[in-house]
Design a protein around this nucleic acid. Structure first.
Length: 675
DNA sequence: GAGTTCTACTTTTTT
DNA sequence: AGTAGAACTC
């Protein structure tokens, strides 16, 4: 990737005034352009404090920060604001919490926390809502808050619940994910002086993955830059795969109308993939109607020494065969083409498909990492631990408090909780305040309740000052957290819970230990300015996936297509290219647009491949324990047949080559290390 | 209030 | 298949 910038890229980097829209096809060196542009701005003498760069994932932010650091040195980039949209929103809220009637130690609720809050709100309204209705309510509320839809017949019945939910959030001093965007927008509208300060500061704004912005995020941007209009958005409508969480790729068109004076640059030279793969990708995406027309073409400079391989479509009988085929292919290409493990990506549409693949990789002793899937921070034991920390930071957080009130068992069961709740309600206090008052004032009316709450209250009262004054030279947060785990004897609690399977308890306990290790590393990081509990909580509440993929080196990536966006591999194996999976059947019921999104997903998967692309589609697969018949995905037919080949049996020559390679690889003969 | 057994259903994707 | 929640028993 050390080619000089091509003319379009040059232009993008050097256009620093006024609105700029960069349509960047897959593999067109987008990240490089953004980082170079930042570097260029800095070299022009712009104060890094005046630059705001927004991304969608922590991973992207991290990568960009590293690349800028490499180019210009971290020191010169200090003060640069390079954040995810959500972190940016959170920062604004932290600085202005008071104006919204919050305090700055607020909690941030993920979907699960939000659901418990919603449940309580429903109970408050005497709704006997079942889980599915609540799920629906949650998605309606989110749609409203991202401005995907307005109140209509479908959502209106939930309006009372919506309001109650927000009353609860506020009482708990908590925000949900969507609040991190929509509250700052409202804050700016109601307090122009706050907006003005931001405008003054951020003279130059850049947005990555612009096609993933929601309408609310777009409004946020527009508010921010409407005066100086120095905004650069980089995106690719063909890679918009997040509309289910509010992404609105039409924002690209909105941008064109709102900023008629914009400059528009297209990056269509692809530095990543072989011509075969590009042809396939172009052919597929052409079937989409709602898109900006573009065509990826190979960059002239790109490597003629690499020969083009056909795209292999393979149709195994079952998912077991598919997994076996994946392992065989990896073995073969490693041997014949010397593909390295970390240049291999196995992509799937749904997390559910990973299990079989994983077990075969394990059996074949192939090193791999999974990205996507349940995050470290969503595991029950970690959520418990975080709930403790949150309650210490923010005692009004009833949701977190209730999560741990009886973990480990303190004889505060549903009955007691109900009582506490009604007492709290009467006085409009938080549950913690209610408990504390009861214990401290030896409430004679509820002796048993006060009795059972006493230890818990005393524990928290004792811990809070310690945590609040940490870190001090003597005590670190991580040490405190470790002792917290001891104090509550979580280990014992786990043993009880996993009486039958002590390994399960062990695993969970280890997870908690690694949480402490992470905290320790975070604390130890020298560039850190704030090491308080508050900032740690803020930091981790926006990490949903493990962006901390430390040890991906030398390992195969097993990933959902969504999680693979932005990555590239020499060899991509896309599994489960089946009707109902890709396109996913849930998408077929709804809008016509959704078929296009599924196609974009397929397109994203295809364009991850640099040299070899394998697509598999099974005759049947095990789903939820039962064997289900499968049909090949219609998307497969959109790849011109001249580009595809069926997988052939290994020829004699291949086998010989493989044997030869294997021998050459024997440790005592090998002279050069690989992987 | 805690522990046990049974049922139902899950996940499409993630900040 | 595995888990979470509900119902049921002590």
């Amino acid at each position: 990737m050390s080619f000089p910038l091509n003319p379009e890229q040059q232009e993008a980097v050097h256009s620093t005034k006024g609105p700029l829209l960069i349509i960047a096809g897959a593999g067109s060196g987008k990240t490089r352009v953004i980082t170079q542009r930042v570097v260029h701005l800095l070299k022009q003498g712009l104060d890094p404090r005046n630059i705001l760069a927004l991304t969608f994932t922590n991973k992207a932010a991290k990568e960009m920060r590293e690349r800028i650091g490499e180019d210009i040195g971290g020191k010169q980039a200090r003060g640069l604001t390079l954040l995810t949209f959500h972190s940016f929103g959170m920062q604004i809220l932290q600085h202005n919490a008071k104006l919204l009637g919050y305090s700055s130690g607020f909690s941030i609720y993920d979907t699960v926390d939000g659901m418990s809050c919603l449940k309580e709100s429903a109970a408050e309204l005497k709704w006997s809502a079942d889980f599915n209705t609540l799920k629906q309510a949650q998605s309606v509320i989110s749609r409203i808050k991202t401005e995907r839809s307005d109140w209509d017949e479908e959502s209106l019945p939930f309006k009372a619940l919506y309001e109650e939910y927000h009353r609860h959030l506020k009482a708990y001093n908590a925000f949900d994910f969507d609040d991190l965007i929509c509250k700052p927008v409202r804050l700016w509208a109601e307090h122009p002086e706050v907006l003005e300060r931001c405008r003054q500061r951020y003279q130059c704004v850049m947005v990555d993955e612009f096609q993933d912005t929601s309408i609310m995020q777009y409004r946020m941007l527009r508010q921010l830059v409407s005066v100086h209009r120095n905004i650069c958005c980089v995106g690719d409508d063909d890679q918009s795969i997040y509309s289910w969480r509010g992404a609105n790729f039409e924002n690209i068109r909105l941008f064109e109308t709102d900023f008629p004076e914009r400059k528009e640059i297209r990056l269509e030279r692809n530095y990543r993939s072989t011509e075969t793969i590009l042809d396939a990708a172009n052919a597929v995406i052409r079937h989409n109607q709602y898109r900006k027309d573009k065509n990826l073409r190979p960059a002239e400079e790109s490597k003629p020494e690499k020969q083009d391989s056909l795209i292999i479509c393979h149709f195994p009988e079952t998912d077991e065969d598919e997994a076996r085929f994946v392992c065989d292919t990896i073995r073969k290409l490693r041997s014949l083409e010397r593909v390295k493990y970390d240049e291999i990506g196995i992509l799937v549409r749904t997390n559910g498909l990973m299990r079989t693949l994983e077990s075969h990789l394990l059996e074949a002793r192939m090193p791999y990492v999974v990205s996507g899937g349940q995050s470290f921070f969503q595991r029950a034991e970690i959520k418990d631990l975080i709930a403790y920390l949150r309650v210490l930071q923010n005692p009004d957080d009833d949701v977190s408090l209730l999560r741990i009130i009886n973990k480990p068992n303190r004889r505060i069961g549903p009955k007691s909780v109900e009582k506490l709740r009604s007492l709290a309600h009467i006085r409009s206090w938080s549950i913690y305040e209610t408990m504390r008052d009861m214990v401290m004032n030896k409430d004679a009316r509820h002796p048993e309740l006060a009795e059972s709450c006493a230890d818990f209250v005393m524990l928290l009262e004792e811990l809070r000052p310690q945590f609040m004054s940490a870190p001090s030279p003597e005590v670190s947060l991580s040490a405190l957290t470790k002792s917290l785990i001891e104090e509550i004897d979580y280990w014992d609690f786990l043993l009880q819970q996993f009486a039958e399977r002590p390994e399960g308890a062990k695993r969970r306990f280890d997870t908690m230990q690694s949480f402490c290790e992470m905290l320790k590393r975070w604390e130890g990081y020298e560039g850190r300015t704030e090491r308080t509990l508050k900032s740690w909580l803020a930091r981790i509440s926006l990490i949903t996936r493990d962006d901390l993929d430390d040890e991906a080196e030398g390992k195969i990536s097993l990933s959902t297509i969504h999680a693979a966006k932005g990555l590239e591999f020499d060899l991509v194996l896309l599994c489960g290219v089946e009707e109902g999976l890709l396109p996913h059947f849930r998408s077929q019921e709804e809008h016509a647009y959704d078929e296009e999104e599924e196609r974009r997903l397929f397109y994203v998967a295809v364009t991850r491949a640099k040299r070899w692309l394998y697509l598999t589609s099974c005759g049947s697969r095990t789903k939820n324990g039962k064997q289900v018949e499968c049909q090949a995905s219609p998307f497969l037919d959109e790849i011109p047949t001249r580009l595809t080949g069926a997988e052939h049996e290994l020829s004699e020559e291949d086998s010989e080559n493989m044997l030869e390679q294997a021998l050459a690889n024997l440790p005592w003969l090998r002279d050069s290390e690989q992987d």
